Lab assay of single mutants.
Amino acid sequence: HDTTVHINGLRIEVHGASEEILKWIEEAARRGVEAEEIKRWVEEALK
């Protein structure tokens, strides 16, 4: 999927993410993980 995830006011563009990654992002956000940190993880995961 190409999608934009909104976390604590930060937009994260996610290209080619699976449902699993999207669920993981939402879970991390709920746990209060910094949005910048999530963004870094997602970029690494999608390389």
Results as ranks from 00 to 15, higher is better:
11 R>K: 15
21 I>K: 01
23 K>E: 12
15 H>Y: 07
9 G>D: 14
12 I>K: 01
47 K>I: 11
43 E>M: 03
17 A>F: 07
23 K>P: 00
27 E>N: 10
38 I>E: 00
42 V>K: 00
37 E>A: 11
21 I>E: 02
35 A>G: 09
9 G>N: 08
45 A>R: 08
31 R>C: 09
27 E>W: 02
36 E>M: 09
44 E>M: 08
37 E>W: 08
37 E>Y: 10
43 E>L: 03
40 R>K: 12
4 T>P: 10
8 N>V: 03
4 T>G: 12
25 I>F: 03
4 T>C: 11
14 V>F: 07
32 G>M: 06
20 E>C: 09
38 I>S: 00
42 V>A: 04
23 K>M: 12
6 H>V: 15
42 V>T: 03
38 I>N: 00
26 E>D: 11
35 A>M: 09
43 E>R: 01
6 H>T: 15
35 A>Y: 12
32 G>V: 02
40 R>T: 06
24 W>I: 05
28 A>M: 14
39 K>N: 06
36 E>D: 11
41 W>I: 12
33 V>R: 02
47 K>Y: 03
2 D>C: 14
27 E>C: 06
21 I>R: 00
8 N>Q: 07
28 A>Y: 04
37 E>K: 10
26 E>A: 06
4 T>H: 15
30 R>T: 10
36 E>F: 06
10 L>K: 07
18 S>N: 10
35 A>E: 07
4 T>S: 14
22 L>I: 11
3 T>A: 10
30 R>K: 15
46 L>H: 03
35 A>F: 14
46 L>M: 11
44 E>A: 14
46 L>C: 08
29 A>D: 08
5 V>Q: 02
14 V>S: 02
23 K>F: 07
1 H>S: 14
32 G>A: 04
15 H>F: 10
20 E>Y: 08
45 A>S: 09
47 K>A: 13
17 A>P: 04
13 E>R: 07
42 V>E: 00
20 E>K: 08
2 D>I: 15
34 E>V: 12
32 G>H: 04
2 D>Y: 09
41 W>K: 09
15 H>L: 14
46 L>S: 04
15 H>D: 11
27 E>Y: 02
21 I>A: 02
3 T>P: 10
30 R>Q: 13
18 S>M: 06
41 W>R: 09
16 G>E: 08
14 V>P: 01
17 A>D: 05
33 V>L: 12
39 K>R: 10
16 G>L: 08
38 I>G: 00
8 N>M: 00
37 E>S: 09
45 A>W: 14
40 R>M: 07
6 H>W: 01
5 V>A: 04
18 S>H: 06
29 A>N: 10
14 V>K: 00
21 I>D: 03
15 H>A: 14
29 A>M: 14
24 W>G: 04
34 E>L: 12
17 A>H: 04
2 D>N: 15
34 E>N: 13
7 I>V: 09
31 R>L: 12
26 E>H: 06
13 E>G: 07
1 H>Y: 13
35 A>K: 04
23 K>Q: 14
38 I>R: 00
30 R>M: 14
28 A>S: 06
30 R>A: 14
20 E>T: 11
12 I>W: 05
46 L>E: 03
30 R>G: 12
15 H>W: 09
24 W>Y: 11
37 E>I: 14
1 H>L: 12
10 L>N: 10
36 E>Y: 03
39 K>G: 05
19 E>T: 12
42 V>G: 00
40 R>G: 05
16 G>C: 06
25 I>P: 00
9 G>E: 08
44 E>H: 11
14 V>C: 04
44 E>V: 10
43 E>H: 03
7 I>P: 02
35 A>P: 13
7 I>W: 00
4 T>N: 08
17 A>T: 04
23 K>N: 11
32 G>E: 04
19 E>F: 10
18 S>G: 09
9 G>V: 00
16 G>F: 07
1 H>R: 11
18 S>Y: 05
4 T>W: 00
47 K>C: 11
30 R>P: 04
35 A>N: 06
34 E>D: 14
4 T>Y: 01
22 L>C: 05
14 V>L: 13
31 R>I: 10
3 T>I: 14
13 E>M: 07
13 E>A: 08
16 G>Y: 06
12 I>D: 02
18 S>R: 05
24 W>L: 07
5 V>M: 06
6 H>I: 15
38 I>K: 00
25 I>A: 03
35 A>L: 14
8 N>L: 01
45 A>F: 12
5 V>S: 04
23 K>G: 07
46 L>F: 07
11 R>D: 15
14 V>E: 02
19 E>Q: 11
12 I>Y: 03
34 E>Q: 14
7 I>M: 02
23 K>V: 08
45 A>N: 09
4 T>D: 09
4 T>K: 07
33 V>S: 03
38 I>H: 00
34 E>Y: 08
40 R>Q: 09
21 I>Y: 02
4 T>F: 01
39 K>P: 02
40 R>L: 07
3 T>D: 13
9 G>I: 01
46 L>Y: 05
16 G>N: 10
7 I>F: 01
10 L>C: 10
